[in-house]
Computed example of a mutant assay.
Amino acid sequence: MLRNALEPWHLLLVAIVVVVLFGSKKLPDTARSLGKSMRILKSEAKAMKADGEAAPEATVLRTEQTETATERPTTPAEPTPPVKP
């Protein structure tokens, strides 16, 4: 069914529509900003992956700390006096 979904003339048609919509003057700026965004995304993904591999003990300690913090009893707040109309 989708065996020949993207033929060369489909890609040409998409390119023409993009040029008409954005104009030839804005295309280099758009491509440049898209490239910067992709570089930032890649570097952030690498950093997150490195953080995940480097410090699995830190996440275990953090979860233990949050579990003990939630188990602490809380002091009840002082009751507020009723409001008279």
Rank of each mutant, 00 (worst) to 15 (best):
K84C: 03
D51R: 15
T74F: 05
E64S: 06
S24T: 07
M38R: 09
E67R: 07
P28L: 01
M1Q: 13
R3F: 08
P73C: 00
V17H: 12
Q65V: 10
L61T: 13
S43Q: 15
P85Q: 12
S43A: 15
K49A: 13
H10Y: 06
G35A: 06
P73Y: 08
P79I: 09
R32N: 03
V20G: 01
G35H: 08
D29Q: 00
I16P: 00
W9V: 07
P81W: 12
M48P: 02
P82E: 14
R72K: 11
K46V: 06
V19I: 07
L61M: 11
V19F: 09
Q65K: 08
L12N: 05
P85L: 12
K26A: 08
P85T: 12
K25F: 04
K84Y: 07
M48I: 09
A47P: 03
V20E: 04
A5Y: 15
W9N: 03
I16M: 06
A54K: 15
A31Y: 08
A69C: 01
K36S: 06
K25D: 04
T66V: 09
P8Q: 00
E57P: 02
L34N: 03
A55G: 01
F22N: 03
G23I: 10
K36V: 13
P81Y: 09
N4I: 02
L27R: 09
A5Q: 13
A58M: 09
K36E: 14
E67G: 01
W9L: 02
K84A: 04
E7V: 02
M1F: 11
T59I: 05
V83L: 11
E71Q: 12
A31D: 00
G52S: 07
L41N: 10
